[in-house]
Design a protein around this nucleic acid. Structure first.
Length: 443
DNA sequence: ACTATCACG
DNA sequence: ACGTACGTGATAGTA
């Protein structure tokens, strides 16, 4: 474009967008991704735009009260920690904390990382907790400062003073697997796992006369693993609605189902997570607190019971090596850049990505497909529900109180049949729904 | 700008 | 011997 071209700035932008469109469309055709794009991605854009525009109501006063409560408890913990250490220091400085724990208090632990700093993350502090009161106090201090700074304070600043709502930005093409991401503020990492954290989630509420409806896929990635690896026993367990972690525990550890204990089931659950992540003995051992050798034995036992899973992992790694990418059930390509790396460690990391990406990515395809269909389905049913948020395997709606049950039934149906008719699964998808005035109670 | 940490699925 | 669980984003400290 010449500088003296009479075209306006707006016209130049439109021209650039048109050229970019032609370029990208040609690439979609060349790579046979047009149908995928038109089915999954393009219908999603207006849906996500409407979600961003709608926002979600957050109780500013509740967050402010939490902030004050957290501040008091943080200050008290700070005094206790300083007293037990015998000096004042910045607890939020990993450097100073490392010096305190491993030099001043002489707790056992080593340097690590290329920076030569002491590690002080939650796993390490948990290991040290039986030896001294300070590590557990620091863990609680960290939890409360996280909740205060990231959620009670920063999230509170994002609330629109007119509407009382927060409006996130969803990125549709930011991740390697096809998931959405959320930022400014990120509403895909709102606390839920601890009682204190749930107090934050409790501040996400419905307008008067309305309810928040949550619908989430149950164990979707594990179901997809059973499907793509074609493991008869796992598929049957999902078809029968059995407890999959208990079944895994029974098979791997030889404990009869009617005598299953929580500890054994918890280990099996960690193994199942490991399968989705592209399991390693180090990672599993670290997660469940057993030596790497013991974890390796668990993995061997698992593969003996479910040889189809191992076969699938070998197949998908070979596919990634030859093509440089793996595919989801709807045909999305997930590129695996390090798969031919000469460095064994980096290559192993890429192999875990190759195992995980089709599972995480297929789950992303499925929920995107459901999201693309839901607005029209709701309208056709005469329901006024508004889709607000997506958190990877969960959708959150705001509905008039008297429509919530009908909406829940419709949403569940659309989500559970999201694969049809293009790619039928050999395992059922199950969606659980719940509703309440607040997001935490809707679960 | 980078690192460590931690919130979520 | 090495040193890793998969995918994100926000905050505070460090340099």
């Amino acid at each position: 474009m010449r500088r003296d071209d009479p075209m306006t700035a707006v016209g130049q932008r439109a021209d650039a967008a048109l050229r970019l469109h032609m370029l990208l469309k040609a690439r979609l055709v060349r790579e046979h991704m047009s149908a995928f794009y038109e089915t999954i991605e393009r219908p999603l854009a207006p849906v996500v735009a409407a979600m961003e525009d709608a926002g979600v109501k957050v109780d500013r006063a509740a967050l402010a009260e939490l902030s004050r409560d957290f501040a008091l408890r943080i200050a008290e913990l700070e005094r206790t920690i300083w007293r037990d250490v015998g000096s004042e220091f910045n607890i939020g400085s990993p450097k100073q904390l490392g010096d305190v724990l491993f030099e001043k208090l002489q707790l056992p632990g080593g340097k690590k990382g290329k920076t030569g700093a002491y590690g002080t993350d939650a796993g390490i502090l948990e290991t040290l907790a039986p030896l001294h009161p300070v590590p557990a106090q620091v863990l609680e201090w960290r939890q409360l400062t996280k909740l205060k700074s990231t959620y009670a304070d920063a999230l509170g600043q994002e609330i629109d003073s007119q509407t009382g709502r927060v409006h996130t930005s969803f990125a549709l093409a930011a991740t390697a697997t096809g998931r959405l991401s959320s930022s400014e503020p990120n509403i895909q990492n709102i606390p839920i796992r601890t009682e204190e954290g749930r107090k934050i989630r409790h501040a996400f509420v419905a307008e008067p006369g309305h309810l928040l409806l949550s619908a989430d896929y149950s164990q979707i990635e594990l179901r997809l693993a059973a499907h793509v690896a074609d493991v008869a026993e796992l598929k049957q367990a999902f078809q029968a609605g059995h407890d999959i972690h208990a079944l895994t525990a029974s098979e791997v550890f030889g404990v009869p189902l009617d005598r299953m204990d929580p500890q054994t089931r918890r280990r099996a659950k960690a193994i199942n997570f490991g399968i989705i992540y592209g399991i390693s003995a180090f990672g599993l051992g670290n997660q469940i607190g057993v030596p790497q050798g013991e974890a390796a034995a668990f993995i061997r036992a698992y593969f003996e019971r479910f040889p189809g899973i191992r076969a699938y992992m070998e197949k998908i790694k070979a596919e990634a090596r030859s093509a440089g990418f793996v595919e989801t059930i709807f045909g999305r390509k997930c590129f695996i850049p390090g798969i031919r790396d000469a460095n064994p460690m980096r290559r192993a990391g890429a192999e875990r990505q190759a195992i995980n990406a089709p599972l995480q990515g297929s789950a992303a395809d499925i929920i995107k497909r459901a999201m693309g269909r839901l607005p029209a389905a709701l309208t056709a049913a005469g329901l006024k529900a508004c889709m607000l948020l997506q958190v990877h395997d969960e959708l959150l709606f705001e509905t008039p109180e008297d429509e919530v049950e009908a909406t829940a039934r419709l949403v569940k149906e659309v989500m559970e049949t999201a694969c049809a008719p293009r790619c039928e699964l050999s395992v059922p998808l199950v969606v659980e729904t719940g509703w309440a005035r607040s997001w935490d109670e809707a679960h």
